[in-house]
Every structure is written in structure tokens, then in C-alpha cells.
Simulated assay, not measured.
Amino acid sequence: MTAFDVIPDLHADPGRLERSLAAVDAGARIAFLGDFIDALSGQAAVSDRAVLERVRDLVYSGRAVAVMGNHELNAILFHRLGVDGAALRRHTPRNMAGHRSFVADFGIMTPEALGWTEWFLTLPLWRELEGLRLVHACWSAPAIETVAARRPDGRLRVEDLPEIAARSTRFGRAVHMLVTGPELTVPEGRGFSDSHGDHRRRVRLAWWRHAATTWREAALSVPNPGELPDAPLPERPNLAFYPAGAPPVLCGHYKMQGPPRLEEDNVACLDHPDTPCLYRWRGEAVLREAHLVCA
């Protein structure tokens, strides 16, 4: 059994990366959960280049493994053209703003930017280690089965990108499920205010809450869950929750609030922007709060 110390989203923050690495046990391998790039709003320390070079060196040396995050996938699409001559991820003001720190370091569609996105394509969408599962946003067995039927190692290829960008096929939608997680549109006439005060009708679902039956119980990133219907979720096959007793999963992506904690006995979301943390996995089939370490 190999010990792994698992580090979540870094978002171009070299200080966060170095603090996390300083907390890693000497005998453990490192596992990264993606989203290495694209600084968050208001972030003090920013260097996509420093973070990427450090992480890539650790992966190339065999000290670390990594999975792809949605920001890496977005960058791959942003810096490539479709058959219509437009970028696969449109260069809208919103997309430009979210990708600004990467562009500041590497430019748009430059050889260097494309070189980094080629490296992103070497990162699998998921990893199943010796009793531990790693994914950026959502461990979905149906989505993994769909992707693995074409790409057994979970690594995407350039020819896959147009359908991923369009989400026009089951394969393309499965890829997005793994890096962004499940969302549902609330019933007509309902909605909620997000953390920025914007009105939304699409709500993220905590796919690990296998006991959840209502919108309020299953919702993520909703400041006031009381705005959601106190009603059962619709029954749809792609909303299968991660079962109790399945192998443990560690994910990032969701920008959780409050102190780091386990979500279930077999799932932990490690992405806590206000409290950098990692998880020290030592072969346990049931995750332990004591193995969550603040960096």
C-alpha cells in the first residue's frame, strides 16, 4: 500500500502550493486534484507559471500523480480552434476574465500556451489507486464507464475536443460530469441567489449525500437553502448518488465554506479556499477526520 497525501485546487497560488508541499509526509506520494491554473478573484499571490512548473516537475519525477480539473479542460478548449475558425471555448469577457492569469503568463494560442495545454491532455480525468479514488469534481460510475469505453486510461485526445466543447454527445457530457459535477434546474418559478447576489436556477448537487431526497438536502453552494423547494428531487438515472460502502473518493472543485470536514465516511471535498488543507490517506477504507490536515 502506497501512502498518498492529496492536495486540491491551487489556482495559480504558489504560496498555497508550497505550504501544502511542506505539510506532506516525507514517505508519502503526492496526488493533485487539478485546477492548477486561473487565479481566483482577490487572490494575493499569483503565478500560473510557478505552480505549473513545480507540479509538472513532481509528476515527471514520479513523486506525484494528478488528475485534470475543469480549468485545465477549459484552457485546452480556449486555446484551440474549431472547424468554424472560432475557439472551442469562446473568448467572451467572462471567459477571458476567468482565464486572465494564465493568459498574462503565456498569452493566447501561443506556442507556450499550447504546450501547456498539451501537458494537460496527459492528465487523466480520474485515478483509481490502491483502494482510493481521485477525481476533480464527481465520481460518476456511468460517466467513467462512458469515457473509458473510448479512452480506457481516462486521457482525452485532440479529436475528442469538438464534441466535448459542444456537449453534443454522451461522451462529451460524461467528460463534463467528471470535471464539473451534476447540476439540475430547479422547478419553474423557483430560483436562488448565489454568493455574488446573482439569481440562478441551476443548482449544484452534492453527489455524495446518498441519503438526500430533497432539493434542500442535496444542494451545494446555495447561501440560503430555504430559497429552494422543500420537495423531492426528480428521479433521473444520471443523478445516482455515490453509494455508502463504496471505496473512498477525494475531490476538489466546490469551494467549500467553513473548516475542512468529511462529507461522508467515504467522500471528502478538499477544496476549501479559506483554509488550505490536504488529506493523508494511509490505506483506510473509511476516511478519518484526523487525516485532514490544514496546510
Score class of each variant (00 low, 15 high):
residue 5 D to Q: 11
residue 6 V to C: 04
residue 10 L to C: 10
residue 15 G to F: 04
residue 18 E to W: 08
residue 20 S to L: 12
residue 36 F to A: 02
residue 40 L to V: 05
residue 40 L to F: 03
residue 42 G to W: 08
residue 54 R to N: 02
residue 64 A to S: 03
residue 64 A to V: 03
residue 64 A to H: 03
residue 65 V to N: 06
residue 65 V to G: 09
residue 66 A to T: 04
residue 67 V to Y: 11
residue 70 N to P: 08
residue 72 E to G: 06
residue 81 L to R: 15
residue 87 A to R: 13
residue 91 H to I: 12
residue 111 P to E: 08
residue 113 A to S: 15
residue 123 L to K: 07
residue 124 P to Q: 06
residue 125 L to P: 01
residue 137 A to F: 12
residue 144 I to G: 02
residue 146 T to Y: 06
residue 147 V to E: 11
residue 151 R to K: 07
residue 152 P to Y: 09
residue 156 L to H: 04
residue 156 L to D: 06
residue 156 L to A: 05
residue 166 A to N: 05
residue 169 T to Y: 01
residue 170 R to F: 00
residue 173 R to N: 13
residue 174 A to G: 08
residue 179 V to A: 01
residue 180 T to D: 10
residue 184 L to E: 13
residue 187 P to A: 02
residue 188 E to P: 01
residue 194 D to M: 13
residue 194 D to C: 12
residue 200 R to A: 10
residue 200 R to I: 07
residue 201 R to N: 01
residue 202 R to Y: 07
residue 210 H to V: 07
residue 212 A to S: 14
residue 214 T to I: 12
residue 217 E to R: 11
residue 218 A to N: 10
residue 226 G to W: 09
residue 240 A to D: 13
residue 253 H to R: 05
residue 254 Y to I: 06
residue 255 K to E: 14
residue 260 P to Y: 05
residue 265 D to T: 11
residue 267 V to I: 13
residue 275 T to K: 08
residue 275 T to D: 11
residue 279 Y to D: 07
residue 281 W to N: 02
residue 293 V to L: 14
